[in-house]
């Protein structure tokens, strides 16, 4: 077991009250996510993908079971005490981008670094580096409403990545984009995954996107249905230095206006 575990879920149960009925969203889910994983949670709407992502993202609590994030058991901690974990260990990419509308692209990326108290100089370096990596160096001063959907999601990715998270959680990151733009966003996430070895967990119900994942976890009616290796990380067999070189050049050649 030389692979480091980033997320360990053990026997997770989670129910919601929907009016007077209790809906069981997750039943006895156990899942191990290791460092460098590029993992898709697949399943139809209402299968429990988002609930599972919320639990991994420390923005919701399970009814039963144990959650260990980056070696720390977070099961017993109340949500407001987990703000530091979310800030320091996790990065979030949302289906609807969720940028702060009054802040520019630059400031949106800078925001989580401000929360961490990163020194000004380092903040500038990181924001500049990530805006360039996502191909938006020229759009730094624009506000979200002046950007296209794809550009907004790129800013959101830069925001998630700027703090060097151990794990990025993306809930349907391409669902609000056309298929071409969505594919490029997924390309970008994949590139980042291979170059930084940061762990990615995203949910989707698009078979085309599942095909690109390193691992696909199928969820049905709140249970893990089956797990499968995806197509994307065939590259895992390649030597690491070769991989880094190709990815870096790929990122450099990504078009900025997707």
């Amino acid at each position: 077991m030389n692979k480091q575990s980033v997320v360990q879920l053990t026997s997770i149960d989670k129910s919601y009250r929907l009016g007077r009925v209790s809906v069981r969203a997750l039943a006895d889910v156990s899942l191990d996510i290791t460092r460098g994983d590029f993992l898709a949670l697949a399943g139809p709407s209402g299968s429990g993908k988002t609930t599972l992502l919320n639990l991994i993202g420390c923005i919701d609590k399970p009814d039963r079971g144990r959650i260990v994030i980056d070696g720390a058991d977070v099961t017993a901690l109340p949500l407001h005490r987990l703000a530091a974990t979310r800030r320091d260990v996790l990065g979030f990419v949302f289906q609807t981008f969720n940028l702060i509308p009054v802040l520019t692209a630059w400031q949106n990326v800078e925001y989580p670094l401000l929360l961490r108290g990163t020194p000004r100089r380092e903040r500038r370096e990181r924001v500049e580096r990530w805006l360039e990596l996502v191909g938006l160096a020229d759009h730094a001063r624009q506000r979200p409403d002046q950007l296209s959907g794809g550009q907004r999601q790129r800013v959101a990715i830069a925001r998630a990545m700027a703090g060097d998270p151990k794990l990025v959680i993306a809930d349907e990151p391409t669902a609000n984009l056309d298929s071409d733009t969505g594919a490029r966003i997924l390309d970008l996430l994949g590139e980042i995954n291979t170059t930084t070895n940061c762990t990615f967990v995203f949910s989707t119900h698009d078979p085309a996107l599942m095909a690109r994942a390193g691992r696909v976890v199928h969820i049905r009616d709140g249970r893990v249905d089956r797990m499968a290796d995806g197509g994307w990380q065939m590259a895992e067999q390649m030597p690491a230095h070769h991989l880094a070189a190709t990815s870096a050049s790929a990122i450099r050649h990504l078009p900025s206006a997707i």
Binding site: H80, R86, R87, F92, F94, R159
Partner: peptide
């Protein structure tokens, strides 16, 4: 509301 949810999700404390 959603913006506040985002701020909290990315690690903004309640007091902030």
């Amino acid at each position: 509301t959603r913006e506040i949810g985002t701020l909290l999700a990315v690690g903004t404390t309640r007091s902030k």
